[in-house]
């Protein structure tokens, strides 16, 4: 339950290098933090905090979108994509290139290396953010971790991306550039399939010639439905969970979720240090 030799976590104050509007209320932040970038794995996250204020007081957990590298190949920093919806992220939307942010990470556990034929990434809302680096990793187009974590190559990677409306669609080109197939669904039919993102998955699985594996991130109801669907279809499924966190490092015991052990008994587990990636079958939704 307790890890014996925790990896060093870097805490630093960095000056924002880029801050770009990607879609409605949705921004990409570029943070120069080479020591974090060198170690971070797809699925891990960072805590970001506005310096010099006690309101908001706490940091916010945000998933790694991707790392960026110098021409030499050296990791330079990380990109974070967020939606300005809460107290802290609305403030964050107003900060400028050159402004400073407190950051600590890498935090949590990355996606475990898993034999994958067809990787189907099911995202809802802003839940696409942990998947760009994951796709790059499984397509063999980027290295992550120190030493680099080796993952088996996937034959195919698809992003199923569900949104309320097309205006929130963020980063789709980033995925397509890697060679990821992107399927969109919207509640209002303003882009792609009109309906839920879950409905995009079964036809993909049926048409797939290799073993499918599902990873999913987004609103909890969607995770639950994806998890149920994966179970019905007999597919391996991992969820990336999200909860408000005070610390991101395992000391506050806020971000708990009921997780089942092999005996089927549940206990509250800290998403930050024991997740955020869990086997869908173990999560008590």
């Amino acid at each position: 339950m307790h890890t014996s030799n925790p990896d060093p976590i870097c805490q630093e104050t960095v000056a924002i290098e880029e801050h770009v509007l990607l879609a409605r209320d949705t921004y990409r932040l570029r943070l120069p933090c080479p020591s974090i970038a060198a170690k971070i794995l797809p699925g891990q996250f960072l805590m970001l905090r506005l310096p010099g204020t006690n309101d908001p007081l706490l940091g916010r957990p945000l998933a790694l979108y991707d790392t960026y590298r110098a021409a030499s190949g050296q990791p330079q920093g990380v990109d974070i994509v967020y939606q300005a919806i809460g107290r802290m992220t609305r403030r964050l939307a107003g900060i400028k290139v050159g402004d400073r942010l407190e950051v600590w990470g890498p935090l949590g556990n990355g996606f475990p290396p898993t034999e994958t034929g067809h990787l189907i990434m099911v995202a809802g809302g802003i839940g696409q953010t942990p998947f760009l680096a994951l796709a790059r990793h499984y397509l063999g187009l980027g290295e992550y971790g120190q030493p680099p974590l080796v993952v088996p190559r996937a034959q195919r990677v698809t992003l199923c991306y569900g949104l309320r409306t097309a205006a929130f669609m963020a980063g789709v080109d980033d995925f397509r550039r890697l060679g990821v197939d992107v399927s969109i669904s919207t509640d209002d039919g303003s882009a792609g399939h009109r309906g839920t993102v879950i409905e995009l998955v079964p036809p993909l699985v049926d048409a797939s010639s290799c073993a499918c594996r599902i990873v999913t991130c987004g609103p909890e109801k969607m995770l639950h439905a994806t998890s149920d669907m994966a179970a019905r279809m007999g597919l391996s499924c991992q969820v990336s969970l999200e909860r408000p966190m005070a610390c991101g490092i395992g000391i506050c015991f806020s971000c708990v979720k009921k997780i089942r052990d092999p005996q089927g008994e549940w206990d509250y587990r800290r998403i930050c240090v024991e997740g955020p990636i869990f086997n869908a079958a173990d999560v008590e939704f």
Binding site: N54, D55, P56, L57, L58, R87, R243, P244, A246, C252, F253, S254, C255, V256, K257, Y268
Partner: peptide, 18 residues
């Protein structure tokens, strides 16, 4: 422990019911 949500941020502080 208590059911989540277990913490809530307030002005310059936080509430917890861990």
């Amino acid at each position: 422990g208590n059911p989540p949500p277990r913490t809530y941020e307030t002005s310059s502080g936080m509430l917890n019911s861990i």
